[in-house]
Design a binder for these strands. Structure first.
Length: 185
DNA sequence: CCCTGATTCGC
DNA sequence: GCGAATCAGG
């Protein structure tokens, strides 16, 4: 589906209201991606929303040598809009979640408060006593993720099987990797 | 990993 | 004009 006046209007409004591109895309529905939304926003020159700072300076984009191309077109647009998509869009005002910071990571806050499973406050992975390893017991196939207070007698290493050439088991590998990734270079 | 917007450029 | 792929960042 193309950008009808209605949809463009909705896009404008939602964008101005501070919704993220992906949220707007979801609101527009009909296979609209956040990329499509962002692209449209740019074409409409709607970019800057709330701008506390008066710095009009936009960081110089890295002049890339060549832009990567996507291989072949796989555009399978939804055909005729005979689906029940046009009937229901009576200005989705209150259904929009907006519990988040503007222009930053938006946490999805379900309007009707779904019965989400309550999660324990991030408990450390529990390793069975028999599998816990001391420093000297580590080898190239054991997870070397430290658990507990290094100064305590209870200190031990995860010791779960780790992949070939991997210092941590899958569980801890993800943790370590993510942390590293976030580090600035 | 999740996510955000920004940009480029073939279509 | 469109938007996927990508970049750059949180």
């Amino acid at each position: 589906m193309g950008w009808t006046d209605e949809r463009v209007e909705l896009l404008k409004r939602l964008w101005m209201e501070g919704l993220s591109a992906s949220q707007i895309a979801a609101e527009l529905g009909d296979g609209v991606t956040r990329n499509a939304v962002i692209g449209k926003v740019h074409r409409l020159k709607l970019s800057a929303r709330a701008k506390p700072t008066s710095s009009t300076q936009r960081s110089r984009p890295t002049p890339r040598a060549s832009a990567p191309r996507r291989s072949s077109g796989v555009s399978s647009s939804s055909g005729a809009g005979s689906t029940a998509s046009m009937a229901n869009r009576p200005t989705p005002r209150q259904s929009i979640m907006r519990t988040h910071t503007v222009g930053a990571t938006a946490l999805a806050a379900t309007p009707e408060a779904e019965p989400e499973t309550y999660r324990a406050p991030v408990q450390e992975m529990q390793v069975p006593e028999g599998q816990r390893l001391s420093l000297l017991e580590l080898n190239e196939h054991t997870c070397k993720w430290p658990i507990g207070d290094p100064l305590s007698k209870d200190f031990y290493f995860c010791g779960q099987h780790s992949g070939e050439g991997q210092p941590y088991c899958e569980f801890h590998s993800r943790r370590a990797y993510h942390q590293m990734e976030k580090k600035k270079r």
